[in-house]
Nucleic acid binder design. Structure first.
Lengths: 244, 244
DNA sequence: GTATTTGATGTGTGATCACATATCAAAAAT
DNA sequence: ATTTTTGATATGTGATCACACATCAAATAC
């Protein structure tokens, strides 16, 4: 008669409980939105408006935003105002340097890991999908492909904690990068260069060349940074001209 | 006539508003508690109990904990259970490697910055206060001195964002480090070694020797790590013996 | 005596309300 | 016509309540 109980107890130990709270889904939704550029840098955020759009009450949104504030993806610009972190040239440059340290290290670790043909295949696939998306002008898919490539590589480094830190950095700079799509020509060129650098990175991992892997990723980050800086500088100049 | 308006617009940009909400004070309080070792690794956390102790309602505590969860200082171990991140040897080792990348880089930047006698003085003062605290067996003050030394150094690197990342890493590993105080002998030796390494770091900064600064900080982190690993290994062995 | 059931207690989650205050446009006074 | 005042609206913050569920010990049934 206690057969059932034993069964229950036996399978109870580590069943990955899928308790998906409303707050969690709101959080993931906002996170995705930030990475896909659905929020502009500096854009004001309202708890109640978001709650209405997402079809929940204000409570889960409030908590999800609290988490995003803790990750510095959203900031409190005043006593009663939330906004997406705006673009600030010097801040962004700081983030780029930090990202080079962290992501360069992750790439280095990925290249040090035992050779994994499946990884190489997967990286190539992500990079190709990025190029294909670019060919048809689908910037959303290109961004997703780029992100998938990078995180697949970093995941191979084998540090969940490092991956997590890098994620929050991407979350902070996500809206800034994604907004650059407004200049289609620049965005297109940026990703074409990225595609070639990714190829170098894949080759470096294949050769298990740590230094080359780090170098490639750092070049990728830096070149993207330069393009984005140019974009915002251009936007600022244009705003000045209109203002005068 | 628009003088006032222009002034307002000019100074509006970065006024550091001091709206200290209850939530913020709760958050800072919990943060300090974590860093000072008032919570044990793996300890269960209850919103309502904390609210009672802190003399607030559950609401601010809930939000403060949400932020700490986002920073991975507290984790959700089950559907309805919060706890301080427990000690896990491999996880902690990962954090150590990441800290070496980030804090080593920060030290490097501090050593690259223009020479600043006030900084050197301040570093020496923090390091001495750590040694003095140690001499009278005040581990709380020693921990505080150690922390002050490190963050003073990193602050000199000039990257607020980097400092922020390092802070969250310290928050995650804080309870683990602070708990090691239970082995007074080990803790004492750990800090004595730290004192000497800090001296090397100060000297490196004085000479503006980036490589030496990075090396010293990395040695500091690594040696602390080894001591702490030994502490937890010893504690686990003891628990095994008692269990047999 | 032992195994099962039950019930009290404590947990995080989410909804709803009251509140102080920031913002902005309309109205009033100069 | 310009400046000042005012009032409506929207904001985040915090308190309180209802709820579903997990845990554990006491009570019950075997």
């Amino acid at each position: 008669m206690n057969t059932f109980k034993l069964m229950n107890k036996g399978q109870r130990t580590l069943v990955p409980v899928d308790v998906s709270t409303v707050q969690e889904r709101v959080y993931q939704s906002l996170r995705l939105g930030l990475l896909r550029g659905e929020f502009l840098p500096g854009e004001q955020i309202s708890i109640r408006s978001l709650a209405e759009v997402l079809g929940t009450s204000a409570m889960p949104v409030r908590e999800a935003l609290a988490r995003l504030i803790a990750e510095r993806a959203i900031e409190q610009s005043g006593p009663r105002t939330l906004r997406v972190a705006p673009y600030l040239a010097s801040d962004h440059e700081n983030y780029i340097r930090i990202r080079m340290q962290l992501e360069g290290y992750a790439a280095e670790r990925a290249a040090s890991a035992p050779k994994d043909p499946a990884l190489i295949d997967s990286l190539k696939r992500h990079n190709d999908s990025m190029a294909e998306a670019l060919a048809v002008g689908d910037f959303d898919a290109a961004l997703a492909g780029n992100q998938a490539f990078h995180f697949e590589l970093y995941r191979a480094g084998g540090y969940p904690q490092l991956l997590d830190l890098i994620s929050t950095l991407w979350l902070r700079t996500g809206p800034i990068v994604a907004s650059a799509r407004k200049d289609a020509k620049l965005f297109d060129r940026l990703f074409h260069i990225g595609f070639r650098i990714h190829d170098d990175a894949i080759e470096a991992v294949e050769r298990r060349d740590r230094a080359a892997a780090r170098w490639a990723i750092n070049l990728d980050i830096r070149s993207a940074h330069l393009a984005i800086r140019r974009f915002y500088k251009h936007a600022a100049d244009q705003a000045d001209n209109e203002g005068s």
